[in-house]
Amino acid sequence: MSKETGLKLIAQNKKARHDYHIEDTFEAGLVLMGTEVKSLREGRASLVDGFGEIERGEAWLLQVHIPQYAQGTWTNHESRRRRKMLLHRTEIDKIERKLSEKGLTLVPLRLYFKDGRAKVEIGLARGKKAYDKRQTIRERDAMNEARREVGRKLKGL
């Protein structure tokens, strides 16, 4: 069997970038059961309600939904169990210091396979206010309009 290479996206939390200012991102490995890996290889997962925490010097991923594997038997996993994240000690310490600040939280941004190993991209995030969200939408619309206008100019319209 050939070794898997490259990056295969499983799930992405688009709403997180809308709801939060992402200050810093980290890539973490995950400790998973066999049926969880099989379910992820089918491309089934949801990061919407997920969040991370540091407890007694260990990083944990909570409320991420990985549905049970259809062909699994009594060895199947719980769909919303706590999963340990694998990070370097310096990264855990840095995240712990940042999380002690008021208003910061740890949110999962992407779940993917990198060279055959399940990884999660987590971000240190600060919640946006409603007016920040409107401003972000306004800026995105302005950028899209500018791109359209440049495209029209290049086509000679």
Rank of each mutant, 00 (worst) to 15 (best):
E4P: 03
T5R: 11
L7I: 15
L9P: 01
L9R: 09
L9A: 06
I10G: 01
I10Q: 02
I10V: 15
I10C: 02
I10H: 05
K14T: 11
K15Y: 06
K15D: 06
R17C: 08
R17W: 11
R17I: 12
R17L: 14
H18S: 08
D19S: 09
D19E: 12
Y20M: 06
F26P: 00
F26Y: 15
F26H: 04
F26T: 01
A28H: 01
L30K: 03
L30D: 01
L30G: 01
L30F: 06
M33G: 12
T35M: 09
V37N: 07
S39Q: 12
S39F: 05
L40N: 07
L40H: 09
E42V: 04
R44A: 13
A45P: 02
S46E: 07
G50M: 00
F51W: 04
E53F: 04
E53R: 15
I54H: 08
I54G: 06
E55G: 03
E58H: 11
E58Q: 14
W60D: 06
V64W: 06
I66G: 05
A70Y: 05
A70V: 11
T73L: 10
T73I: 09
N76R: 14
H77K: 11
E78N: 10
S79Q: 13
R80A: 06
R82Q: 12
R82E: 10
R83N: 04
M85F: 10
L86F: 02
L86A: 10
L86D: 12
L86W: 02
L87W: 06
H88W: 05
H88S: 11
T90V: 11
E91F: 08
E91N: 14
I92R: 04
K94G: 03
I95C: 00
E96Q: 14
E96I: 07
R97E: 14
K98W: 04
L99N: 02
S100N: 12
E101T: 07
K102H: 08
K102Q: 11
K102C: 05
G103Y: 07
L104N: 09
L104P: 04
T105G: 09
T105P: 01
L106H: 04
V107D: 01
P108W: 10
F113D: 00
R117M: 10
K119P: 02
K119L: 12
K119Q: 15
K119Y: 08
E121G: 02
I122G: 00
G127D: 08
K128T: 06
K129H: 10
A130I: 11
A130W: 04
D132N: 12
K133D: 05
R134V: 09
E139A: 09
R140H: 11
A142K: 15
A142E: 02
N144H: 12
N144P: 00
E145P: 00
V150E: 10
V150I: 13
G151E: 13
R152H: 10
G156H: 07
G156C: 07
L157S: 09
